[in-house]
Design a protein around this nucleic acid. Structure first.
Lengths: 165, 165
DNA sequence: CCGATATAGTTCGATTTCGAACTATCAGTG
DNA sequence: CACTGATAGTTCGAAATCGAACTATATCGG
């Protein structure tokens, strides 16, 4: 009755996560279906690779809806069709993005569910992270900036630690 | 090709989030379909209320698979069927839970995607925190100790910052 | 130019999910 | 006892997704 996996834009049909990502991705530059698959794979570290049997028909449908269009071919005949976002597509994307707060909330609730089922991550760092989260929730507003700074430094240190072999 | 919304248990069919939640929930106590709907609604603050047209057929299927069973009726004829988890159901749940780390990782990647599309969470600190969380889930095991140390230091700095008026 | 591998897209059956409309039962109130 | 609203479950058509098998084209090394 209230879907976790659909994304609404008040007074417009709901879109799936994949459709939404396609619009978002084509908003940046011209891309083929294959490009989009690889992009999602990379972005999610392989956690999600949508099925081609979902993506390609979706692209055709978005095209007939006028949200995306085949990019003007440059160079010889290719086995590849690049797409770009149309003005209508851009508008649709904007309307959905207007609800970002709501969708972030949904994502948090999704995580909530997963945590309820699987419990907190077993790794030792996670429990500390949980403490930090609690601290952050109770922080007075005037301290938020400083806290952000501390956290960013921590993030950078972690990154460095991961990258050094 | 790699689904975001299916949950695997090595050498067993994959289950959907809803199926998984049903097993998890019935593991705690006897419950009707309706109870489960209300429970999820409450847990997610209304962000997800699965469709009855999904839940009830699912319950029937889990029953024929022998993972859940109707609870022994106590009292007169009711318009309600309570279910309990069978031993087989408990085993299945355990096998899926064994992969908790992997599923936590998936959840992080999902958030990643949402963040890519919608931009960062409103609170500045929180978004950094989630970056850190993701980093932590991707960290190789031999680095975990070092990461823990970095995080503990970060926590202490935050505490100090909060306490000084 | 041949073969291998990466890129690019199609087709299809099976499964999930949604949402809406519909039926039925139960508890409380006048 | 009839009315009402909450509880509980059924049915069904439309859409989304998966995964696997299949075709075709580029590109590159030998």
């Amino acid at each position: 009755m209230t879907s976790l996996f659909q994304f609404a834009s008040k007074s417009g049909r709901t879109r799936t996560l994949l459709a939404l990502y396609v619009l978002h991705s084509l908003d940046k530059n011209e891309k083929s279906g294959y490009d989009i698959l690889r992009e999602i794979e990379k972005l999610t570290n392989g956690a999600w690779v949508p099925s081609k049997g979902t993506l390609y028909p979706l692209l055709r449908q978005l095209e007939t809806e006028g949200l995306i269009a085949p990019a003007p071919e440059k160079g010889g005949s290719r086995a590849r069709t690049g797409f770009i976002l149309t003005r209508t597509g851009r508008d649709t994307l904007k309307r959905i993005r207007a609800h970002s707060k709501e969708h972030h909330r949904k994502t948090d609730q999704y995580r909530h569910l997963i945590t309820a089922i699987f419990g907190n991550s077993p790794s030792p760092g996670m429990s500390v992270l949980f403490e930090i989260r609690t601290l952050l929730n109770e922080i007075p507003e005037e301290k938020e900036k400083e806290a952000s700074k501390i956290l960013r430094r921590c993030r950078d240190e972690l990154k460095k630690s991961v990258n050094q072999t």
